[in-house]
Design a protein around this nucleic acid. Structure first.
Lengths: 321, 321
DNA sequence: TAATCATTTTGTCCTAGACAATGTGTTGAC
DNA sequence: GTCAACACATTGTCTAGGACAAAATGATTA
């Protein structure tokens, strides 16, 4: 990571720091009060001005928090101790197939765009779409997230990686026109959750299962989700939550939506973000793993009188029993 | 728009209202104090609970504000007067080629996904990529935005439209591999600006001009933009701002970035969001229209000794004079 | 070992005042 | 009549410290 001395930078206002770090203004102020960090200067008007070095440290702290450390502990540490935590490997998190993913990670680290793109298409041709998503893409996204949280790569590398994945998914899915399949599934996220890759993975997996996905993209307000679900006559709404989305907000948003959504339409929620939700929510199906998606699908199909269709069977138009 | 009576909804907490309306908690509280609206109930703990009807009204007010009306005026109006404003056509904003776009708008309004997708590809084949973007896509996006601000369509229709556009752009651009062209251009947005379509339009226009675009996707923190620009050795950073992004924040962000970006790398900013920026910013090229992009490109090329290359000329690898 | 309770931690919400940045309207000069 | 400069009104954001509930941690018991 680059740590360059910046000339003539008196400091960033609190709104810029919120934008850069993702920490709310309230949190920044209360940390200052409780832990004595950060220690911003003040401008002529008494407003906070954060030194760039402190902003950098705040982003580092935020990253470590996403990894599970708690602020009270982190804010008491000095630079050296923080850097040491970056190195520490969380043995539990380490995904399987590590060996195999190392080659991919090398391409990500060196931002070798062309090679990455080529490799994606080759591997997909080799494994087929479903296996490619489940066995390569999903673990790889996890791995990239871990690498970022360990400060081995930056946001830049993560963004570039995501862009290539997205480009690949979209060009592949463009030619697999939505069939007349069942159930019909609305794919979107709540306002504030901007990650699209989860939705694209679900779309890819569901298309080959004869499901008819309607991709709405990220950040739909709940009343518009309700309207979309009714107009497009979907059987279920499927939301995706990344680990960055606060579990409190996820749960609150799911409750809000369940309240307004007609009872006949199911509500499925997936992604790393739902792992942190402890209490089950009435009328909401939480799917922390992709397996849950298949479970929900199978359950819906048996309840609605469809023969279970395996992914490996050539799919004819599904008909009610 | 659907206005259904919701059962058992005591009200939404302020964080949900912020998520749904895009109005900050500070703003919601100060409106209540100053204008006497909204008038949330309180829960046992004294915290605000907003009635769903009021939330709906707040989103309507926000929409009208994006159209230029001021809060002080809007908050004094009753339901009927607000609805009347929705109808009022802003004659000035009306785009040219209205006649031609009507057919497209009909497809958007009826959420006819298949027809829309087909029509995109046909028209692109007919006009060529550059003309398609400049003469169809850009005005159509404006038109859709206006229709939304006039409450003729909802977020749902707008999202669906955007998704189809994005799918089309990405599958088309996937096969136009980045050349070795010059200048090298980094495409991204600041944190908080999630609109990707502007970036994709720029990528499409630049690819056919022999520029080598590096698409980073939306929401990159400024220090990572700096790092990406250096690692990918780009000649300029190009940011996109939608009209939803506050002009104050745009200007602040551009100043922040210009401060940290090496002087040798140019900074270009485009999109509707920069129209509202009054004062020019030192070392930043503001391009409210697409023409500005071509101007910046031509200027860079003459300054760096490249022959100007027209879009209509078959492009050979550009070489310094 | 697993489940229940008590305790700390931590983010968000509260009030109400202040100010700067922007928008609007008015005056005056040409 | 048109345009610049001014004064005034509007509006979002920032400040302060207190309060509380949800979540995480540690202690106790079955």
């Amino acid at each position: 990571m680059i740590t360059e001395a910046m000339p003539f930078v008196p400091g960033l206002p609190i709104s810029s720091v919120e934008r850069e770090t993702g920490l709310s203004k309230d949190t920044l102020r209360v940390w200052e009060r409780r832990y004595g960090f950060p220690t911003p200067e003040r401008d002529a008007n008494g407003e906070r001005l954060y030194a760039p070095m402190q902003v950098q440290r705040l982003t580092q702290i935020k990253r470590l928090m996403d990894r599970g450390y708690r602020p009270g502990k982190l804010l008491a540490l000095d630079d050296a101790a923080l850097a040491a935590l970056d190195e520490a490997r969380p043995g539990v998190l380490a995904s399987p197939n590590v060996q195999h993913l190392d080659n991919w990670m090398h391409l990500v680290e060196t931002h070798d765009s062309e090679a990455l793109q080529r490799q994606f298409y080759r591997e997909m041709g080799k494994l087929g779409l479903a296996s490619f998503v489940l066995d390569i893409v999903a673990p790889l996204i996890t791995r990239v997230g871990e690498a970022w949280s360990r400060n081995e790569i930056g946001i830049f590398e993560e963004h570039l990686f995501s862009q290539h994945l997205e480009k690949m998914f979209r060009s592949v899915l463009a030619n697999m026109s939505p069939q007349q399949g069942s159930p019909r599934l609305l794919l979107t996220t709540l306002s504030g959750e901007e990650h699209t890759l989860g939705l694209l993975m679900v779309e890819a997996l569901m298309v080959v299962e004869d499901v008819c996905p309607v991709l709405l993209g990220p950040q739909t307000p709940i009343d518009e989700i309700v309207r979309a679900a009714q107009l497009k006559q979907v059987d279920a709404v499927c939301l995706s939550f990344s680990s960055a989305y606060s579990p409190t907000l996820s749960a609150q948003g799911l409750r809000d939506l369940r309240q307004m959504l007609p009872a006949g339409i199911e509500l499925w929620a997936g992604g790393y973000g739902v792992k942190a939700i402890r209490k089950p929510i009435d009328g909401v199906c939480l799917m922390p793993e992709f397996q849950g998606l298949y479970d929900c699908l199978a359950k819906w199909r048996t309840q609605h009188g469809y023969e279970p269709v395996s992914a490996s069977v050539i799919s004819l138009p599904a008909t009610p029993k």
